[in-house]
């Protein structure tokens, strides 16, 4: 079954455990500045919002890459950067409408979420289940369930 990351900002506390897990998995150090998932703080509004690649089916980054460095992992559905091919031209970073693929100046390559080969470390690190990894065809299930609980179809006492 293909799975997708589902992010619920209402549950996020801004702790950055996801960024730490991501950078550690991919770079071997705890380094939010090298994380593929970012948590944004909206101070005035009191909101924290994790944001990362949604793995577009028809991916702008993949289309734009002139050296075919971005390929599909058919098992996870992730668009994965092949460091051997990437020349660091950054065209993908311009083409991505969401800004979720970024240049890493210390390696000269681009970095993006690759779903950790089907075991996303941000998900297991998140202490509040603000980031979950669920059936790609049912990403709205949790929201639907929440609305469903508010549906009052119990037998009315006045019926």
């Amino acid at each position: 079954m293909e799975k997708s990351l589902v992010i619920n900002p209402d549950k996020c506390t801004g702790c950055l455990q996801c960024e730490l897990a991501c950078s550690y998995e991919n770079e071997g150090v705890f380094n939010p500045s090298k994380s593929r998932i970012k948590v944004f703080t909206f101070h005035q509004e009191g909101r924290f919002v994790p944001y990362t690649c949604t793995q577009c089916s028809d991916a702008w980054c993949q289309q734009a890459c002139p050296v075919d460095a971005i390929s599909l992992n058919p098992i996870t559905g992730a668009k994965v950067v092949n460091d051997n091919n990437c020349v660091g031209c950054k065209v993908c970073t311009i083409s991505c409408p969401f800004g979720t693929i970024n240049y890493n100046h210390s390696t000269g390559k681009v970095i993006k979420c690759d779903l950790c080969d089907g075991d996303p470390k941000c998900v297991s690190a998140c202490p509040t289940q603000a980031i979950t990894y669920v059936d790609a065809d049912q990403t709205g299930m949790e929201k639907m369930r929440q609305w469903a609980t508010q549906t009052d179809n119990s037998p009315s006492t006045n019926a």
């Binding site: 506390t13 702790c15 950055l16 455990q17 730490l20 009191g46 909101r47 924290f48 202490p127």
Partner: peptide, 19 residues
């Protein structure tokens, strides 16, 4: 209270964000 908030790396998140 609007929400609770965490410091760096904190899985407790006791911080208060208020109006």
């Amino acid at each position: 209270l609007t929400t609770n908030a965490a410091c760096f790396g904190c899985t407790i998140a006791c911080g208060r964000i208020s109006t």
